[in-house]
């Protein structure tokens, strides 16, 4: 190998390792997974406590807690999001896809919940034949919302895993679908909220914490 070839080989070798570094830019959105996961966890525990009778609170406190919890998480996300956009790797393809997918999931779930709540509130009669504001129909309708949410999480995690080349997130995606099935199997029962609370710790808070650690110390493989 002559001198020119030697130099070109070295340049290509550096280029290759840089390309791999770019491809493996860490996901920077771990804090979102943790904050939203903890907010949802707190709301689910409160929801369970009220519907199971463990906590004596008026039924209206359930939607109030959800709106407050999700609102607080949204405000925090807006503030934290600006800082994350300045982090190394924030513009990389994995983060761009992840951001787009999770924004869509957030919009889907937010719109679903608000529309469902408003529709039930304005319905002329309850699906159970009683008064429109019958708490049972809210319970029944939102019993579906929890499994739907975990299904959406599973899809978003799978898309993020693919874009960021993260086998670990793929496993969390599968776990999310398992939680979805478990929550669906417990439809209409207070235990559904406990399963949901445990599930959100597993498929949101835990991967978020791992991502935050990796964003500080980029992964190897």
């Amino acid at each position: 190998m002559n001198e020119l070839q030697q130099r070109l080989t070295e340049d290509l070798s550096i280029a290759r390792s840089l390309a791999e570094e770019g491809r493996n830019a860490p996901l920077v959105g771990g804090i979102f997974y943790v904050v939203w996961g903890l907010a949802i966890f707190a709301c689910l525990i409160f929801n369970w406590a009220v519907v199971s009778g463990a906590l004596a609170a008026a039924p209206w406190s359930i939607p109030a807690a959800w709106f407050a919890g999700m609102g607080a998480a949204h405000v925090y996300s807006r503030v934290a999001g600006a800082r994350l956009r300045t982090l190394p790797g924030a513009e990389a393809i994995g983060n761009a896809v992840s951001g787009a997918v999770w924004r869509s999931v957030g919009l889907f779930l937010g719109l679903f919940a608000v529309t469902l709540f408003a529709a039930l509130f304005q319905a002329p009669t309850s699906i159970f034949g009683g008064a429109a504001a019958d708490g049972r129909q809210f319970g029944a309708a939102f019993s579906i919302f929890l499994p739907v949410s975990f299904g959406a999480y599973g899809v978003a995690l799978a898309a993020t895993a693919e874009a960021a080349k993260s086998p670990l997130l793929k496993r969390f995606s599968l776990l999310s679908f398992i939680v979805m099935a478990a929550a669906l199997a417990l439809i209409g029962r207070p235990a559904q909220f406990i399963v949901g609370a445990a599930g959100i710790l597993l498929v949101s808070v835990l991967p978020g914490a791992i991502m935050m650690r990796r964003a500080v110390a980029p992964r190897n493989g």
Binding site: A19, E20, E21, G22, R23, E91, A92, I93, A96
Partner: peptide
Amino acid sequence: AYISGAGA
């Protein structure tokens, strides 16, 4: 090289 991997 870096942008080819990261996209941006």
